[in-house]
Design a protein around this nucleic acid. Structure first.
Length: 595
RNA sequence: GCUCCCGUAGUUCAACGGAUAGAAUGGAAGUUUCCUAAACUUUAGAUAGCAGUUCGAUUCUGCUCGGGAGUACCA
């Protein structure tokens, strides 16, 4: 049991005994005592004033006195206004450290047979262009979230829905057929997703020229867009695709495969993966069926032009189109189909969609529709709605060439990490392979931490020139702290020091602060699971690293002459390192043994 | 027009309704005979505005002003 629980419970008993009123331990406000006051934990007593009918400071003193007399963990107390500062019995801290050190899974819950199964959808790329910075935030959030849910004892299925059909793919295919001269990723020496992206851009360029040309000939802009020969041809291709035309389908299969090969390389490098991949080409017909079913049951209705709609005005929303008048499906229809297949494949208790906040409305609607159609998790589906990544010039626009490509970004981070390491002389004596590995871990760590430390719901700013930073509140700072701890422990081993016994001491204030922080890990993991927030873990591990760095700087460890104190500090370092490794692990970050 | 989200140091980010609003970076000033200076120590600097609820409001409510997103046959 953590110290927070012990104190919270004791406070409840105190209030009950002194004033005869019941409080739940969860309702007690506990915080770490501010540095300027004496104590480790602070109880906010304002909520008890109604029960005590006494001034705040008197109430705090009475509770403090009770705790001192009745709770073994409490050594002394002081009350300032409505704040009761508690000094914990020093021996308690050493036991706490031992307890955490003995539990390699401290803070993690294992899944059991009755654990809920949560499916997490993330990434969801289109197959007509490479992954960009927005996807990187999405992928890292989704992957980290899956690790956090696992740590909270859920069974987790990571899934990806690939949007592999539609007019956008046809544009790339058409451009490739027209101007590609049979080029392949191998011949071009290019990743498949980038190659296809090039053709998509090429289509757009020629298409725009055509529109401009037609408008010069007197057409309105709308008409020109409608009548552009390229667009007409692309639409025709989509129709042939829908009809199952083998010629179109085989090109489509081939080009999609190029893209998947490219994506897989990017995913692998980023360190994310999936348990099950769905393709919209396989789910959109299911959605159509499900919608028609709903139509029969009277959940949807048909307009005179043949289009199918859902009336959501009773739920405060609008009417939503589900099938176009020509019978083809829209985005929403596909999502319904995907939901159906997923539910067939897995006994889902909880579904989390990691999708940008621009689609908040879409998921409000989807939740209602799935519920009406009888999916038991529909009403409670979680739209993990994350904010956009903005650039100094504003939003990323592929047409304006302001997209930050995922592969380029990773290259850049790793290269910068490598240069910085070399400048600092950190790579001296490393083999080329070791140097590569260290640069990779640091570069990707910097990127991951940067994107995950921000509250996922908020839009964030990414300045390509200034964001690549390795000092301060960054991934490398945390990794550096870890590497330093590992180095310290190596040195201890070389000196033949066994610090696993004889380390019972009364820790100093600074050491207590670190133990407290370490103990918080369990709380943080649980909280992150409830609020779906990797940022909580990120900010936590930074705080821990910062706290340790200050400790490291102020205290000697190996040179400490008192063996018990030295052992204690080594043990504290070891446990801190382990917690850093596991916390960063929840972010999908790696930590280096040296850097 | 309507709906939703967001406004915190120069900048990028924190803060279950709790004490004097924290960090980082940039600015200024320091610390290497010593376990890794990607570190550490000083220092200046912020809640967009106006009301309300409360013992207490960055946080909750209302309005104003700014920024972003969505809005029925795009995905």
């Amino acid at each position: 049991m953590s110290i927070d629980n012990i104190i919270a419970q004791a406070v409840c008993e105190a209030v009950k005994s002194l004033y005869g009123v019941n409080f739940e331990p969860e309702s007690i406000t506990l915080q770490s005592t501010r540095k300027e006051f004496e104590g480790n934990l602070t109880v906010v007593v304002f909520p008890f004033l109604k029960a005590s009918h006494k001034p705040a400071e008197t109430t705090a003193n009475e509770i403090g006195e009770y705790l001192k007399d009745n709770c073994e963990a409490v050594k002394s107390y002081n009350a300032i206004k409505g704040f009761l500062n508690i000094v914990v019995e020093p021996a308690f801290w050493c036991n706490m450290l031992k307890h955490i050190a003995a539990d390699p899974d401290y803070g993690f819950k294992a899944a059991t047979d009755d654990s809920e199964l949560v499916m997490i959808e993330y990434s969801s790329p289109n197959t007509n262009k490479p992954l960009h910075l927005g996807h990187v935030r999405n992928n890292l959030l989704g992957y980290s979230l899956s690790l956090i849910m696992k740590a909270n004892g859920y069974k987790v299925v990571k899934t990806n829905i690939v949007n592999d059909r539609g007019i956008h793919i046809c544009k790339s295919m058409l451009a490739w057929e027209k101007w590609g001269n049979g080029i392949t990723p191998e011949k071009a020496g290019k990743k498949g997703d980038h190659l296809i992206g090039d053709f998509y851009v090429m289509f757009d360029k020629h298409y725009k020229d055509e529109v401009k040309q037609l408008m010069a000939e007197g057409m309105s802009e709308d008409e020109a867009k409608e009548k552009s020969p390229l667009m007409v041809e692309a639409r025709k291709m989509l129709q042939r695709w829908e009809a199952g035309d083998e010629e179109v389908r085989s090109v489509w299969r081939m080009m999609n495969q190029w893209v998947y090969d490219g994506f897989n390389e990017t995913y692998r490098r980023m360190g994310v993966d999936f348990d099950k991949i769905y393709y919209e080409s396989e789910t959109y017909l299911e959605g159509k069926k499900k919608v028609l079913e709903g139509l029969e049951k009277g959940i949807m209705y048909r307009k005179e032009d043949g289009s199918v709609w859902a009336d959501l005005t009773a739920d405060g929303l609008d009417h939503k189109l589900l099938l176009r008048s020509d019978g083809t499906s829209v985005y929403m229809t596909q999502d319904i189909g995907t939901a159906k297949l997923r539910y067939q494949d897995y006994p889902i208790d909880k579904m989390i969609y990691v999708v940008g906040n621009e689609q908040n409305y879409h998921f409000q609607v989807l939740s209602l529709l799935l519920d009406k159609l009888g999916f038991k998790w529909g009403k409670d589906l979680v739209h993990f709605s994350y904010g956009m990544v903005e650039l100094p010039e504003g939003k990323m626009k592929s047409r304006e060439g302001t997209v930050v490509d995922a592969d380029d970004l990773m290259d850049e981070m790793i290269r910068t990490a490598r240069e910085t390491s070399a400048e600092l002389g950190k790579l001296d004596g490393c083999s080329a392979e070791e140097a590569d590995e260290i640069a990779r871990i640091i570069g990707l760590g910097a990127l991951k931490y940067f994107l995950l430390k921000v509250d996922p719901r908020k839009n964030m700013m990414f300045n390509p020139k200034e964001s690549i930073d390795f000092n301060g509140n960054t991934g490398p700072f945390i990794q550096y702290t870890y590497a330093r701890i590992r180095s310290l422990l190596r040195k201890a081993a070389e000196a033949g020091i066994d610090y696993n016994s004889n380390y019972d001491i009364e820790p100093s204030e600074k050491e207590v602060a670190i133990i407290q922080k370490i103990a918080d890990f369990a709380q943080v993991v649980s909280e992150a699971g409830k609020t779906y927030s990797p940022a909580l873990v990120a900010n936590y591990v930074y705080d821990l690293a910062k706290e340790y760095n200050q400790f490291y700087h102020d205290y000697s460890i190996l040179r400490e002459e008192d063996a018990a104190t030295r052992n204690f500090r080594l043990k504290l370092s070891e446990v801190t390192g382990n917690i850093i490794r596991r916390a960063t692990g929840l972010l999908g970050m790696e930590v280096p043994e040296r850097m």
